[in-house]
């Protein structure tokens, strides 16, 4: 796999793992009220420290859930445009199961990110002569 494919796969995996429908464990066709109800239930369970609410499954492995993630997912599904985007990614993930990610069950999003092979080095810009006044 070349670096371009690798980075694209990592990005797609992250998008699937963070997908609001998977975070909230909801069907793509759920109503707004069902979404609010589910978010309320999950936030309540997390507040009381119920272990059954702390993880969720996605086509690319298990994710780790916290209250921030539930609130962000709810906010995305309340916004019609963002919901469409989430629907698209959830459909793609369900239709074509992406290759398994070795870090999937570790909740990659909560761990320090691996450097992307093609990621720009943050300090190169000034050293390259740009941005220096």
């Amino acid at each position: 796999m070349d670096s371009e494919q690798q980075s694209a796969t990592l990005s797609a995996l992250a998008r699937v793992r963070e997908n609001a429908f998977f975070v909230l464990e909801l069907d793509i066709a759920c109503s707004r009220m069902e979404m609010e109800r589910q978010a309320q239930k999950l936030l309540a369970m997390l507040e009381l420290g119920l272990s059954s609410a702390t993880t969720y499954s996605t086509p690319v492995g298990t994710g780790i859930r916290d209250a921030d993630k539930v609130r962000l997912a709810s906010a995305r599904l309340r916004d019609p445009e963002k919901r469409l985007e989430e629907e698209l990614w959830a459909r793609i993930a369900k239709a074509e199961k992406p290759p398994p990610d070795p870090d999937a069950d570790l909740g990659l999003e909560d761990l320090p990110k691996k450097p992307r092979p093609d990621a720009p080095w943050p300090n190169a810009l000034p050293a390259f002569g740009w941005g220096r006044k």
């Binding site: 009220m33 609010e36 309540a44 369970m45 009381l48 119920l50």
Partner: peptide
């Protein structure tokens, strides 16, 4: 809530 059937969670 506007929901007619909300969840109650207890411990």
């Amino acid at each position: 809530t506007s929901d007619l059937t909300p969840h109650v969670v207890g411990r």
